[in-house]
């Protein structure tokens, strides 16, 4: 039994890392969805966080914690700069702006010498331990729990439900949307930094449009009524491909089928908030 557990752990312990990193990314998009905004830039924010944190530890030799913090702060700063003009408007402008932004970031990674161009960065020191990820996730869950029944959480919900009504009640809609977007970028950047320090290797291809859509799928599959939804969604979508390994190349098709079925039969996601009536 113990031997089985040991071999299971040896084979699958990286899966735990990935589940937690994807969980963080799902939460990073959830906070913008919570106020009705769609960000397609979270993969790019993760990439910026990953490169920033990795370069801080590799070139500047700073303590891991400071590198991670830098990896979260830079995306948050960029989000404030992109968000301030685009989030004044309501509607799909954030989605459009972040879609373009993600492409710009990918091309920048490909062409800058400091990021290693198309080769990427090799030899990022392995500093991330599983407990770091659990700690980060714990802090995030605490944050979202506190947010839920606070005036700030309610303001986000009000904006998601009806932005105009929220504004005439005195809720500063632009301010909330920009901060939600920046906090999301911070979480994505942090996840990127943590991820970089256990994969050893960074490639610009990992942070493109495909992954931005994957992150969105985590949240949609799990349901965006509460932050538990995206966490469940990301966990399922990370573990599922592993469980379906035996069917070989059909697994992407099956993956897609499961998604379609969920969208048809559980349009609000797996975690549907029970309605009171």
């Amino acid at each position: 039994m113990i031997e089985f557990l040991m071999s299971f752990w040896q084979t699958y312990n990286t899966l735990f890392y990935t589940v937690l990193v994807h969980g963080m990314l799902a939460l990073s998009i959830y906070i913008t969805l919570a106020c009705g905004q769609l960000s397609l830039g979270n993969a790019a924010f993760m990439g910026i966080g990953a490169y920033t944190a990795a370069l801080f530890t590799m070139k500047l030799n700073v303590p891991f914690g400071i590198a991670l913090l830098a990896g979260g702060m830079l995306p948050a700063l960029i989000a404030l700069i992109i968000g301030a003009p685009t989030l004044r408007l309501s509607g799909v402008y954030l989605a459009m702006a972040t879609l373009g932004f993600g492409e710009v970031v990918r091309v920048a990674f490909l062409n800058m010498s400091i990021t290693g161009g198309s080769v990427g960065l090799n030899g990022v020191p392995p500093k991330t331990e599983l407990w770091h990820l659990f700690a980060a996730m714990g802090v995030l869950i605490y944050f979202f729990l506190k947010l839920k029944n606070s005036r700030f959480g309610r303001a986000l919900e009000a904006i998601r439900e009806d932005e105009v009504a929220a504004a005439v009640m005195g809720i500063k809609t632009t301010w909330f949307k920009v901060w939600a977007f920046a906090i999301g970028a911070f979480i994505a950047g942090l996840a990127g930094g943590l991820n970089a320090h256990f994969t050893y290797f960074l490639s610009p291809r990992e942070y493109g449009f495909d992954f931005a859509v994957d992150i969105l799928t985590f949240a949609i599959l799990g349901g965006t009524g509460t932050f538990w939804g995206p966490l469940i969604g990301s966990t399922i979508l990370t573990i599922l491909p592993e469980m379906l390994r035996f069917i070989g190349s059909y697994r992407l098709a099956l993956n897609g089928l499961i998604l379609v079925l969920v969208v048809i039969y559980l349009p609000n996601g797996i975690i549907t908030v029970k309605k009171k009536d």
Partner: peptide
């Protein structure tokens, strides 16, 4: 333009934001 998915109480508390 009420907040349909929130409870009545939450609607009012959101109104009290400021």
């Amino acid at each position: 333009r009420i907040f349909k998915e929130l409870s009545l109480m939450e609607n009012l508390l959101a109104g009290m934001h400021r």
